[in-house]
Design a protein around this nucleic acid. Sequence first.
DNA 1: CTTAGTAATGTGAACGTACACATCGCCAAT
DNA 2: ATTGGCGATGTGTACGTTCACATTACTAAG
Lengths: 346, 346
Amino acid sequence: MEPGTRQIMEADRVRAPNIRDVARLAGVSYQTVSRVLNNSESIRPSTKQRVIEVIDEIGYRPNQAARALVTSKSRTLGVLTAQTAHYGPATSLRAIEIAAREAGYLISTTSLISSDYDSIVENLEYLMNQAVEGMIVISPQVRVFEAIKQLAIRIPLVTLDSTGRDAPRSLSVDQIAGAKMATRHLIELGHREIVHLAGPQDWIEAEARMRGFLDEIDEADLRTHPPILGDWTAEFGYHAGRELVGYRDFTAVFAANDQMALGLLHAFREAGLDLPRDISVVGFDDIPEARHYWPPLTTVRQDFAEIGRRSIAILLDEIHGDARVDLAQILPELMLRDSTAPFASH
Amino acid sequence: MEPGTRQIMEADRVRAPNIRDVARLAGVSYQTVSRVLNNSESIRPSTKQRVIEVIDEIGYRPNQAARALVTSKSRTLGVLTAQTAHYGPATSLRAIEIAAREAGYLISTTSLISSDYDSIVENLEYLMNQAVEGMIVISPQVRVFEAIKQLAIRIPLVTLDSTGRDAPRSLSVDQIAGAKMATRHLIELGHREIVHLAGPQDWIEAEARMRGFLDEIDEADLRTHPPILGDWTAEFGYHAGRELVGYRDFTAVFAANDQMALGLLHAFREAGLDLPRDISVVGFDDIPEARHYWPPLTTVRQDFAEIGRRSIAILLDEIHGDARVDLAQILPELMLRDSTAPFASH
DNA sequence: CTTAGTAATGTGAACGTACACATCGCCAAT
DNA sequence: ATTGGCGATGTGTACGTTCACATTACTAAG
């Protein structure tokens, strides 16, 4: 191509300024500009100053693609999540995003539409194609682990679950402890017939909460019906509640999340029951609305934002090779409100 | 560097396979592999087949950074959002992510921590540094537009608001129409003293809902107090409700979102009022929980997922140069439930 | 049997940056 | 005056891909 032609093209589509443009205008070599960009030492303050001025003046932005290409570091972390519209995951995700940005990392999120195996694989492939340096799995489901193993994913991985699975490092609020606290609270109030409205059993959190419930029931030498397996929604809680009022062989319900608890309250009240006198209800999560339900919901609080922040800290540590952040579990907290009351036979 | 040294390095850290490795193993040139990757025509099926087999076999993944560098297309879209933990934005965001992925685009999200001008600029800069090809602003606030203008951002932009501002193309559920529907409903029930619990006024949606309310009040020749300016939370709704019960110079409240409506219900019920006989309440959004509030909330439904999908469609159209998707506003829908009742003086 | 035309494939260059190494200039110690 | 050392800056090259253009293989028409 002749020089002339070239110049016309350049004039045509204004090329974004690059490191050499900056260098030329600042009267230094491109390498010096690179050093400024990467905060290298051994650069004279006056030179640095001059370069920075040129950068600001012409609005130069480093080309991330070129950087990624040469360093073979994408500075991107992948997040695999389901149900992001829910308060918990959404809050964690937001904290993750902010923490990642502060550390200079980009987040690439992928939301599972369906939870079948192929879909999970497809989503993981998507993240791998972004050359993510590490991965966080929020609200993990059992099949996700199979897929990760199957794909032989080798990058650092942090999952937000409580079970300490083999492959990845995991972290979360201690779901089992939370469920036990909730259940114990009901037992201490004198309830003996307690129903558990659980989450979908392929969700690790749901499984853990159910385990905590059953353990506590067991320790108190009580009996219980097999838990009802729900889908986290208020709608399901409502229908389960309508079903339950037909039996009345229980005095309290522990729901695996606040939304389902809300559905229960709705159904019970609609059936003319007096809450919490007739039936006590405990939820899980302590979403901001829970304290304004009627009656205000007794529930187990977990700090979703803190989980998000810590997961990033752990992941970055692992990426940088110093796995020193401890995985101490975060303890949840029982929030006592008005949806639970002592059991009084009447 | 001598060849020998080089080989040791390669053996040291296993380099990911590149297009040339594939080409060598398939017995073709790298350009042919490139053609297969880009679905170029005029390539013999048998050749294509062979290349694909090699790709699968050695697990080759195209290097996105190299692609982005040479094409100067990042295939990334930026999303600027606030309050992502809320149901509405979170739902839209999820739909955006899924739609973008289907179109082969990556989403880079940035959440506004604070809404001051500097913070907005910082977040926009962050997105520009990712070389995003287009931008979506969810739940836009007024200052965002100033910042965009100030930074002279030239990439395609879609905002999710209802006001048809000058610079960008915008799209949303018609907030004003929704607010008018809610207000008219209350008026038709016979209410004459209606209070509006508005959202923060630097939020464009909040402003639009308030405008709709005031317009409708005006058209019905009614009077109203100046709206209460809230912050979207149930907590605020609750405190506003406690304040309001002291006056009792109204018979209905239109809250700018469901969460604040929930807080109102809580406060009113706590004050011993009979809902909806004593006071009618209307919300906005129709989050999934709204129908399970007590009483089930009359509210204005908007389809957040649809907004998300459409915004991507519009943005991609604009990026590809054919701006043909129309911006017809999506109409919201009034969901009649039990939190509103005819006004009867008693 | 030649020739033209097209389908299929190959070659050279460029994208913008960071790394490894080379060079320059200066000052202190001999 | 010479040397060594170090701080500051410059030069060559590679990263993996696509684009523009060049070449080869094949097919059909004369």
